[in-house]
Design a protein around this nucleic acid. Structure first.
Lengths: 244, 244
DNA sequence: CAGTGGTCTAGACCACGCC
DNA sequence: GCGTGGTCTAGACCACTGG
């Protein structure tokens, strides 16, 4: 561990940051699987030759990033994408009533296409590269609420075409089938008018104001993985955002 | 400090949490003013009779909440509401180009009214209580982009009626004039159609899709302070949200 | 150079979960 | 009772700032 600090005199990096990088690498490489109990602080400290306090600082940082979950008396676990906390981490549309419910999905289309300009730019796909384009409608209490298009690089998600079904929780699918964990996402929101096609799927008049959510999701290494364009009816739900 | 821990056997609270509470109180009471250099870790440790590490943990927590700014070699300072970091903390509308610019404001109305039902509920105002209602248009590069209504409890903001002018940055005004610091805010977003009045102010056709932002802002004690309803044209700007 | 916050260590004790 | 993470302490050294 410490050799790195000594040889890297050009750019000083704290020990705990190096430890964190080492441990995140284990998640990326799949050495530590979602749900798994990882070694105790003391064992990790012995293994890496640093103090327990330094290990703790790295683990605390990863916990703050939702990569790990610590349970006093039990141990430290790798976060699972199906946990409700993670489930809602990337899903900010909530009913006005406040009760958080998760939508169901119905797939409209699943196509393999050549990546368009936006997809090439956002997903860093080379010219001529292919994408999987997934169109689906999401319903809350049977009522269509969201129509969305999901784009994935076929290079990154080899074999997506051959899947029999696409589950509701695709982030869990990414994790289980391709070992890709979504670490963070950025969303850009606008208000738009419903197109003819959107209106048909959502059962609303053409031109109805919709909330457009343009999401790019990134893996643990910070590479863009998924592009998602959602159009949402917001008559009985809203997008919730906390500023602090 | 420690007496609290001993007498409060019913509900254990870590020392650093008690220290944090003690220090936040100094901000609320105005003993520590925005921009001020606060005592060093060592001095605080001596004063409160705890170790430097415990002080550090409290200060780090407050730094994470944007209440303090720590500068290695210089000291720890109280955050100022006019700093650009804080300025953009509560302002998530950015030009599609990415260059972050701050809008100007033009006041349309400033009224004293009896609080309506929504204001009473969100701002915890008793029946019959009064509010200041502020209507303004915000422009980016001279172009009207946002029309918004700000509601404040008159009880909390005594003398607001008598102000000669209302500045663009009202959070700084709250801080300087009434010693109220906004600590966090919650926003609920919807897509709506422009009303006749909104359309006139924004120079767009009636029915144009607008992004509606419903914000409740809270002070350091967690009490609601400001209610704000914004309607935004999102043709050249978008609302930016980071999920992690 | 002195003083500040930032890192790292070592060790003690506490609260919690499980057997 | 034992092992886990959580808290608290004390002290050393490093990196940065300003006079």
């Amino acid at each position: 561990m410490s050799e790195t600090a000594e040889t890297a005199a050009f750019a000083y990096r704290p020990l705990y940051a190096q430890v964190r990088e080492n441990l995140v690498r284990r998640l990326i490489d799949g050495a530590w699987q979602p749900g798994q109990l990882i070694p105790s602080e003391i064992d990790l400290a012995k293994e890496l030759g640093v103090s327990q306090g330094t290990i703790r600082k790295a683990l605390d940082a990863m916990t703050a990033e939702n990569l790990l979950i610590r349970r006093q008396g039990r141990g430290t676990f790798v976060s699972e994408p199906e946990e409700s906390r993670i489930l809602f981490q990337f899903y900010r549309l909530v009913p006005d009533s406040g009760a958080r419910s998760f939508p169901n999905s119905r797939i409209l289309k699943r196509l393999r296409e050549t990546a368009n300009e936006v997809e090439r730019r956002e997903l860093k796909i080379a010219a001529g590269g292919d994408v999987i384009r997934l169109e689906r409608v999401r319903t809350i209490d049977e009522k269509p609420m969201i129509v969305e298009t999901i784009s994935l690089s076929l290079k990154r998600f080899a074999g997506f075409e051959d899947l029999e079904t696409v589950p509701n929780n695709v982030y869990r699918l990414y994790s289980e089938r391709w070992g890709i964990t979504i670490g963070r996402a950025g969303e850009r929101l606008k208000a738009i008018a419903a197109s003819k096609a959107d209106a048909r799927e959502l059962g609303c008049p053409q031109g109805t104001p919709l909330l457009e959510i343009n999401r790019v999701a990134y893996d643990l290494e910070g590479h863009p993985v998924e592009l998602r364009l959602s159009r949402c009816l917001t008559d009985v739900v809203h997008y919730s955002s906390d500023l602090r």
